[in-house]
């Protein structure tokens, strides 16, 4: 009875996480989601500052709508437990783009939000790393 004679392919086991870790996870998820949703809706609603930024990037208006929509999608995905890692991946990617934009064209003002969201996404990814596609199954349990 003690040894399992038939190790079957294990589903990503929900490793028991302590309440402290769960709290951090949810703070990171909600924090990232709120900022992403705020930024995304500003872009979609045509906020003058966003229009100015995207004009500088020569991506007006298509780029603004696309990025805004992706930010909103990431915000939603990241709060739903089953899709949190995908939301975090998407959020991280978007923030990498934003950081590149600030470093190369837009100036440093406002970069702190992008850095903050990227960090929060990394926190989510780290805590939920075992569920991450292509990576999770390579990590120790």
């Amino acid at each position: 009875m003690s040894t399992d004679p038939n190790p079957s392919p294990e589903p990503p086991a929900p490793v028991g996480r302590s309440p402290a870790v769960m709290t951090i996870l949810w703070i990171a998820k909600l924090g990232a989601a709120v900022i992403l949703l705020g930024a995304g809706s500003l872009k979609l609603s045509g906020d003058p500052h966003e229009i100015e930024l995207f004009t500088t990037l020569e991506m007006e208006p298509a780029g603004r709508y696309l990025i805004g929509a992706l930010e909103c999608a990431a915000a939603i995905l990241i709060v739903i437990p089953q899709s949190a890692v995908y939301g975090a991946f998407l959020g991280l990617g978007l923030m990498c783009g934003a950081i590149i934009g600030h470093l190369t064209k837009l100036g440093l003002a406002g970069i702190q939000f992008a850095l903050l969201v990227a960090a929060l996404c990394l926190v989510v990814l780290y805590i939920r790393r075992r569920d991450a596609p292509f990576i999770g199954n390579l990590l120790d349990r």
Binding site: L57, E58, M59, G63, F89, L92, G93, L94, C96, G97, I100, G101, T104, K105, F134, I135
Partner: peptide, 22 residues
């Protein structure tokens, strides 16, 4: 390309950057 041609290329930059990390 993103720097000198069009910012749109940075979609690819980000994609390949994440791929490099993985």
């Amino acid at each position: 390309a993103g720097l000198y041609i069009s910012f749109w290329f940075h979609f690819l930059t980000v994609f390949f950057l994440l791929l490099t990390v993985i």
